Simulated scan of single mutants.
Amino acid sequence: MLRALFIVYAVASSALLDDATAADAETRAEHIVQLCAEHHRDAVGAAYPDAYHIRHLPSLRGLVVEATQAEVAALKSHEGVCNVARSHEVTHRPDAGRRLDVDALRRNNEWWGKSHNQGKPWNLDRVNGKLDGNDAFEVSSKGTNVFVLDTGLDTLHQEFEGDREVENVGSYSNFHPGGVWEDKEEWDLTSENRAWLKDNNDSDGHGTHCASTAAGKNYGIAPLANVYGMKVLPGGSEGVIVRALDRVYDLVKRKKVKGPTVVSMSLGGKCRDQDGNEGPGTKYCAFETHYARAIRDLRDIGVLTAIAAGNNGEDACEMAPGASRDAVTVGATNINDRITFFSDYGNCVDVMAPGENVAGAASSRE
């Protein structure tokens, strides 16, 4: 039935489209299809055998599909579909705050001085109080879990040593055209062309650096925390994150991961409405995007989501997922406790924290 609707819609529309518009209409883009009820899943999914099924996030249960404009129109008219929204592509933030590799820093006295205070990483020294050369924390991070949604994770880096779990639990595989989300449980780790995914799937370095500032043994806020990498930016650039958030919800809900859990995301993009248009308004960006709803679902089971406000020097309320009101959105300060020139700002920023000249780990595949 769906395929018939697609054909009828395409034929009726073709006479009204010029060549450029017609080509655009046939371009497939990722969409979130929200089902009105679970019993509609098979009927809607039959037309998309390669769809990813969102089965865990309560407010987004449905499918992630690659669809043309004609197919989207047909889906919206289906009795079993309550909503169809274009996926928001996100990128990791430009490194305006300078991403500094600890190994390279030791060979560069200038940058070592800018990233350290009295021999200690200045960001850790400042977070635990005043800049006094003491970067120790009174509260232990043992048993805490940090999911880092980014470009991947170099689990073999010395910053992640210790008696804790550090592993990659999900990835977009570059071995499949278009990118296919793969959970760790489905990986064939005996296969030579996939074995590296287990230990280091970060060819960009951004994810490894962010993970080390969160949970590195020398450069992290929570040096004893378990770290789980989720590669949502397959080429080190653009990606989408709903699949990963669905996976986190499932792992926590089934108690595969126990203890206080944080999702860390230093990524984002312009907030868009369900048709992909920019500027839908602050309320929509804060509560109604699929990112905002997924983050609210995670909050309801006790998972904290921390998101970088952004490095664009713009209003954070215009960004997604940073505008989500159920997340903790973090702006950037420098060593003088002033907002950096690049940090996003505004009412959607919940807290300011060190974000300039911050040292951390670099991936061996970078």
Rank of each mutant, 00 (worst) to 15 (best):
F287N: 10
H92I: 14
E138V: 14
L63I: 02
V248N: 05
P280Q: 08
I335N: 09
K258W: 02
V262Q: 03
C82R: 15
W122D: 01
H116C: 14
W196F: 14
F342V: 02
A136G: 08
A308T: 01
D18F: 06
D50S: 11
N334Y: 03
A306S: 12
L189N: 02
E238W: 07
R254P: 09
A211V: 09
P260C: 07
A15Y: 05
G207M: 04
D199T: 15
P260N: 12
D183M: 00
M1E: 11
S324G: 12
A353M: 01
L304F: 03
D95L: 13
Y291A: 01
L197G: 04
R3C: 03
A96D: 08
S203K: 08
V330A: 02
H53T: 15
G152M: 06
M1K: 08
C271K: 04
N117K: 07
V180R: 14
D204I: 03
L57A: 05
V242K: 00
G119F: 07
E238I: 00
S324D: 11
L5V: 04
L124F: 05
N123G: 07
E89G: 11
L17M: 12
L245E: 01
A320K: 00
N201T: 04
G45D: 10
G229V: 14
V330M: 03
A20Q: 06
